[in-house]
Nucleic acid binder design. Structure first.
Length: 308
DNA sequence: GGCCCTCTTTAGGGCCTT
């Protein structure tokens, strides 16, 4: 099984099944996942020569629902795809039929996730936003919500999430989010497949943060959740001249791979988008199959044993 | 705080995450 081919196929799914969800919580009622209606258009630009060879399907604007999730209403925006991106999309189309045949061979549910927090200390700070994306795609492949930290947000300059956006009764606290999160992950585990949750610097930041939030709710993270940190993968990357990359930051990786920025910067779902594409690029460059990626995975209990 | 790298391993500095 060739991972790069499957991954390219997945690239197709990323573009065609993106659906953001805004989790709204009403005190005393069952939380509901509501679709967001705002959209932005991905418009393809093609030269005349390219346009002649382009199939009609690829010429159609690709609609991507965008949920800024900041409580404000913003007008639709337009994302222009340049020539190199168009070339990549065309390559993806070549693999589409392969992916559709092999997609059920995926050994695991691959989910990219990211959190925004009130700071860096897992003991003192709290999660204020979480976003997940099932890279397989499909209906409800994305999940995103703000989280009420029940404390002041002092680092809004990082992510743009202000206290008044999250410290409100209609934003769920983490303990109210836990059962929904567990159910969402379970809903992605069709046929009892292994779930693998990818995060950049996940071992050092996201997963320990999740562990502490779950602990506060007196809930253990399921043992069948396998986490994979993409930071060690990034540190293995080398340039064509053999030298290492100057930086392994997620945004620097995005720029290195010339991945366009989609959505508001420094928000959880935007970073999930970036991670999804960076992961695709890195796995291709490092020639890593899905099982090889999962070999580097770890459980929440592995971290707890090291740093209780 | 974990991981990586080096002027290292009996250590220390820097990266990466918000």
């Amino acid at each position: 099984m060739s991972f790069p081919i499957i991954w390219s196929g997945n690239f197709y799914h990323l573009r065609h099944s993106c659906s953001y969800k805004l989790l709204r919580f009403q005190s005393g009622s069952t939380p509901k996942i509501l679709p967001d209606t705002r959209t932005c258009n991905l418009r393809f630009l093609a030269s005349k020569a390219e346009g002649k060879n382009q199939k009609s399907q690829s010429k159609k604007p690709q609609n991507v629902n965008v949920n800024h999730n900041d409580g404000s209403v913003k007008s639709s925006s337009s994302k222009t795809i340049n020539k190199s991106e168009l070339h990549e999309f065309k390559a993806v189309q070549c693999y589409q039929h392969i992916s559709e045949k092999r997609v059920f061979d995926w050994p695991a549910v691959v989910i990219a996730f990211d959190i925004e927090t009130t700071g860096l200390s897992r003991q003192k700070e709290r999660i204020i936003e979480i976003a997940l994306r099932d890279l397989y795609g499909g209906k409800n492949s994305t999940f995103q919500t703000l989280v009420n930290p029940e404390k002041e947000v002092s680092n809004s300059y990082i992510h743009g999430i202000r206290s008044d956006m999250v410290n409100r009764p209609d934003v769920p606290r983490f303990k109210e989010l836990v059962p929904i999160l567990l159910q969402y992950i379970r809903s992605r585990q069709t046929d009892g497949r292994q779930v693998a949750l990818f995060a950049h610097n996940g071992r050092g930041f996201d997963v320990p943060f999740l562990i502490h939030e779950f602990r506060r709710c007196k809930v253990e993270i399921p043992e069948d959740w396998l986490f994979v940190d993409t930071l060690p993968l990034a540190r293995k990357l080398v340039k064509p001249d053999g030298s290492k990359l100057e930086s392994s930051k997620l945004d620097d990786l995005r720029q290195y791979y010339e991945i366009p920025l989609i959505g508001p910067a420094h928000r959880a779902m935007q970073d999930v988008h970036t991670l999804a594409y960076v992961l695709q690029k890195m796995s291709y460059q490092l020639k890593l199959s899905i099982p090889e990626l999962l070999d580097g995975g770890f459980r929440a209990s592995d971290i707890i044993k090291v740093a209780p």
